[in-house]
């Protein structure tokens, strides 16, 4: 039994590595992108606002699975071809940026007008106000929601299975089919649990650090 577990672990770990890669790139690109979109949603330019609202509406209103299939299998029919891995990253980044944008938009709205006014009377510039007053408050407000989304992302990454990428879930599924054994799927579950546990612990540390003020 133990020998069997050790024999499939390398393929599971290489699958897990792909999961981590997708998690990493989606996080580092879609959070700043989401912040930009959130500022855009507050823009005075009506056209910009309308386009961004439409983008958020489409992305949040349709399944991520559909978006993945659309980008990898659909777009080539109109001449836009992404390799598998890139297709997955594009789909995840576009999808998660929309969710992050909504979270940041809510966070920005939750900062009381009085904070902006106090900064204005003190003579702080807009940039100084955003950087020293608004940003720290928004970060604190959105932290729990961002954490939730990141944990979702770990699990959502298993959707890349549908476009044939060898992630953790696929590695487990292949082993189960080949060896007619439940063990690989149980191990897959354990690896996902381990990843989300580490992430949860990290998020808790970050949240704790932001709790010096209320």
């Amino acid at each position: 039994m133990l020998n069997y577990i050790f024999s499939i672990l390398p393929s599971l770990f290489s699958g897990a590595w792909l999961t981590i890669e997708i998690f990493f790139w989606t996080t580092v690109v879609s959070i700043p992108l989401g912040l930009l979109v959130a500022f855009g949603l507050h823009s005075k330019l009506k056209l910009v606002k309308a386009i961004l609202k439409f983008y958020v509406w489409i992305i949040r209103g349709t399944p991520l699975l559909l978006q993945l299939i659309f980008i990898f299998y659909g777009l080539p029919t109109v001449g836009i071809v992404f390799p598998r891995y890139e297709a997955a990253l594009v789909a995840f980044i576009i999808n998660y940026a929309a969710y992050f944008a909504e979270i940041f938009r809510g966070g920005l709205q939750a900062v009381p007008v009085g904070q902006f006014e106090a900064a204005q009377v003190l003579g702080l510039s807009r940039w100084q106000t955003i950087n020293r007053i608004v940003r720290p408050q928004v970060v604190k407000i959105v932290l729990p929601s961002i954490g939730n989304e990141l944990i979702n992302l770990v699990k959502d990454s298993s959707l890349v299975y549908v476009i044939g990428l060898g992630d953790l879930l696929r590695a487990g599924n292949v082993a189960t089919a080949r060896d007619v054994s439940l063990v690989p799927l149980v191990l897959v579950g354990c690896v996902y649990l381990a990843m989300t546990a580490v992430l949860t612990a990290l998020l808790r540390v970050v949240e704790k650090r932001s709790n010096v003020w209320k």
């Binding site: 006014e117 106090a118 003190l122 003579g123 100084q128 003020w213």
Partner: peptide
Amino acid sequence: VGMVFQDYNLFPNLSVMDNITLAPIMV
């Protein structure tokens, strides 16, 4: 003109000292 707001509008993310010194430092 300086202003003391009805609900004070202190910056909750800054200590008392940082609330007081923010504008002198930044502005």
